[in-house]
Design a protein around this nucleic acid. Structure first.
Lengths: 154, 154
DNA sequence: TATTGTTATACTCTATAACTATA
DNA sequence: TATAGTTATAGAGTATAACAATA
């Protein structure tokens, strides 16, 4: 699997597969570091990002994050303890709850967002303009290709 | 942070940054799934891959994986319990141990390797030959760029 | 004294199974 | 009965701090 992103050394021209793998570790490391600087995990940031523009229940949230609902219970518990989200009663359905981001949650996820855009933007500076465009197109093609082969959730 | 890789919908042309992020989630999901099919986590596979061609101690292993040594103690404990690695005494240094992969460990990491190469190879089929070449070059450039900015470990 | 490795402890993330309270 | 959500439990992964043994 070619270990991780770092592991410097001479760099003997990566295969596309190894490049994909190392790049994924690199990006995840950046995300984890920048989220961590705000006291969050990648999972917490994902959750906050999902909730930024939706007001949904635990089950739906679990579906989007591709986690079990019991996992999401804990996730929301911890975020709620930190004042990042709230569980709201749903009028007319006493067994449902809707999770919403608080202002504090919005603020912190915004900080992470900006830091990520900045740092990955700098990284993209390694490519010239044409390189950036073709890379962006290729990335989109790979993602679409994957998404069409593996059923997309919601 | 643009949540995760899935989350299909119309696909409104990703920015380079969002593409990088989604692609990293996608690749990690593939790695996690294929490792999981062999009963391993990504971390365990990384460790086995590191040990495949090196005989090193706990401290060095921690450095390469960028983990605390105490974390590696647990990692090696669990892998050893499953018969994937062994702690070997180091002749002439009674406080050091060298971790080595067993045949079982080698076999299972090989299975994961092959599955990953196959699946990511298929994914790369979304690009034509020229696209693959330029994508491979760009990926290499991004990784080198990152590695030169952030001190490389060992 | 410095270094290698482990232990103790704690927290996050995740899952499965069983349960409660609605619908 | 079926569904939304929680609780109980367990295990992996991670970190910090303290410790043991050896160099």
């Amino acid at each position: 699997m070619t270990a991780s992103a770092p592991e410097g050394a001479p760099a003997p021209e990566l295969s596309l597969t190894d490049g994909l793998i190392q790049l994924s570790f690199l990006v995840q490391a950046v995300l984890g570091r920048l989220a961590g600087e705000q006291g969050l995990s990648i999972t917490q940031v994902r959750m906050l990002a999902v909730l930024e523009d939706r007001e949904i229940g635990m089950r739906r949230l679990a579906g989007i994050l591709e986690l079990e609902k019991s996992s999401v219970t804990g996730l929301v518990d911890r975020a709620e303890r930190r004042g990042l989200v709230r569980r709201n009663a749903v009028p007319g359905n006493r067994r449902a709850v809707h999770v919403t981001v608080t202002e504090a949650g919005r603020a912190v996820v915004h900080l992470v967002h900006e830091a990520v855009r900045t740092e990955l933007g700098e990284l993209a500076g390694a490519l010239d303009e044409g390189g950036q465009n073709s890379f962006r197109r290729s990335t989109g093609a790979l993602i679409r290709h994957y998404v069409t082969r593996h059923a997309i959730p919601l």
